[in-house]
Simulated assay, not measured.
Amino acid sequence: MSKLYFYYSAMNAGKTTTLLQSAYNYHERGMRTRILTPMLDNRAGEGVVASRIGLKAEGLRFDRDDDLLALVDADIAVAGKLDCVLVDEAQFLTRAQVWQLTDVVDKRDIPVLAYGLRTDFRGELFEGSQYLLAWADNLDEIKTICHTGRKATMVVRV
């Protein structure tokens, strides 16, 4: 039975690196993945998911109005069986898109691994993160350290 996973952390903790490593692990075993990336994130180029350490892969861009279940179904129709969906910058998902990812898991039996920030710099939840925290089957914090050497927190105190 497939699950929806939400991996969250502070900025610069290696979320995208972890996503790309997961995709590599699937590919190494002869399995096919699809990486989804929000259209508004074009730091590495349109449709490119890249980590600060130089790893990169092509991603399928989505917009706030896109139906992610329909995108996954279209991908399967074109390229065949899909073994895993990975979502970069998952904090930018809408409530509806998180629900669509639960359908990818429940109706298509495809695991979904979503990576993103939990909160913004004020400690406020992002929409996508809010619903991933509520509906994901597994929640996992990717830990990192701040410049003080202590565990980085996701809230800036003013």
Rank of each mutant, 00 (worst) to 15 (best):
S2N: 14
K3Q: 15
K3C: 07
Y7E: 14
Y7T: 13
Y7D: 03
A10W: 01
N12R: 14
N12V: 08
K15A: 04
K15P: 04
K15Q: 11
K15M: 07
T18N: 12
L19E: 10
Q21V: 11
Q21P: 00
S22H: 07
S22F: 04
A23I: 08
A23V: 12
Y26V: 09
E28P: 04
E28W: 06
M31R: 15
T33H: 07
I35N: 01
L36S: 02
T37W: 05
P38E: 10
M39P: 01
L40F: 09
D41Q: 11
A44E: 02
V49I: 13
V49N: 00
V49S: 00
S51V: 05
R52W: 06
R52N: 06
I53Q: 04
G54E: 03
L55D: 03
L55F: 11
A57W: 00
A57P: 03
D63I: 04
R64D: 11
D67S: 12
D67M: 04
A70R: 13
L71Q: 12
L71T: 04
V72M: 07
V72I: 15
D73S: 15
A74P: 05
D75A: 11
D75V: 03
L82F: 00
D83K: 00
L86W: 01
D88L: 03
D88K: 10
E89N: 08
A90G: 06
A90F: 08
Q91I: 04
F92W: 10
T94A: 13
V98H: 02
Q100L: 01
D103P: 00
D103T: 05
V105A: 00
P111W: 01
L113E: 08
L113H: 12
L113S: 05
L117G: 00
G123D: 12
G123E: 04
G123I: 13
L125G: 07
F126H: 12
E127N: 13
G128S: 09
S129V: 10
Q130H: 14
Y131I: 11
L132R: 09
L133N: 07
A134S: 13
W135P: 06
L139C: 06
I142L: 15
I145N: 14
C146K: 14
H147Y: 12
A152W: 07
V155F: 11
R157A: 12
